Simulated scan of single mutants.
Amino acid sequence: MSGETFDLDKQQLMEREFAQMESKLPGAVYSIRQKVALTCRILFDNGHDSGLAGQITARGETSGTFLTQRLGFGFDEISAGNLLLVDEDLQVLEGDGMPNPANRFHSWVYRARSDVRCIIHTHALHTAALSMLEEPLVISHMDNCVLYDDVAFLPNWPGVPVGNEEGELIAGALGNKRALLLAHHGLLVACSSIEEACLIALAFERTARMQLLASAAGRIQPIEPVLAREAHDWILRMSRSASAFAYYARRTLKQCSDCLLE
């Protein structure tokens, strides 16, 4: 019977759609190693390339361990088979080579946040450019509301983040947020799933690009906080993240199916 939803209010309609998302949105089944490798390739394809800079990690099955890429490999060269499993002291447990020494601050974030399963740090171009202005990320568009009230800001650059002091500072600045803009540096994303972290990293760089474009044309206008939080919760659904990640994975795999090889 048609027209049965026309008397429902917005909240009822949103709950109805949430239920459908849980049962009908397509996802994809990949191992943790494959998800990390796909995330590296997806981010490379979407402007997060900066040579050998940046790290992507995901908690391992054993407490105090995480997967990461090998130092010397670009994001576009990562596969499930060349990832490293390291402990929180960055000692290699599985794989050949060494991790990026900057992974030390990942260990600090994992220690501080038991809810975090994946951390992404990149020097994406527009984010890096924005970081040079020492200004926080501004959320003022519907597409970017996944980051609304969820991005911390570290205004002081601590230098190369290979020391424990930098790790403690970055973990403290992140607090309970999902993302952090580091002045004169780049972005940090810390999420409860690899899929969510990948998508928020993509959203972060797009937001930075939009901010630079908009601010060059005029003054960015704020959006209504209640509506922004509504949009944040609407976008940030596990089923929606899984489906969006599957889309980006399909797009990337058209060019590099070898990245799934373990």
Rank of each mutant, 00 (worst) to 15 (best):
T39G: 03
V138M: 11
A80Q: 04
R113K: 13
V86E: 07
S192L: 06
T57L: 04
F204H: 05
E224C: 11
Y148T: 05
D149M: 12
T68L: 15
A244Q: 04
G27D: 03
D143N: 12
V138G: 02
R209H: 14
G27C: 05
A242H: 09
Q34C: 01
I120P: 10
F105S: 13
D49N: 10
V92W: 07
N100H: 13
T252A: 15
I220A: 06
E262G: 07
C191V: 01
S31I: 15
N164Y: 03
A208V: 06
S23M: 05
G167K: 10
E134R: 15
D115C: 04
L133G: 01
A214L: 06
E135V: 10
R206A: 12
C198T: 00
N100I: 11
L154F: 09
I78F: 06
P225K: 13
F204E: 12
L90V: 05
L174P: 01
V146I: 07
S23Q: 13
R41W: 00
H48M: 06
S140F: 11
A217T: 01
L125D: 09
G167L: 10
H48C: 12
F75W: 03
R16F: 11
T68W: 02
E22C: 05
S31L: 06
L133I: 08
N164Q: 13
T62N: 10
S193D: 03
E15N: 14
E15G: 15
C256M: 10
A171S: 14
R250D: 15
G60A: 02
V226I: 14
G159L: 07
L93C: 04
L43C: 02
A124W: 04
Q34M: 01
Q12T: 00
F75S: 04
E88D: 14
L253V: 06
M238R: 09
F245G: 00
S50H: 11
L71E: 11
L188Y: 02
L181Y: 12
R240W: 08
C256I: 07
Y247W: 14
Q221T: 15
S114G: 08
N100M: 04
A249S: 02
L13M: 09
A217D: 07
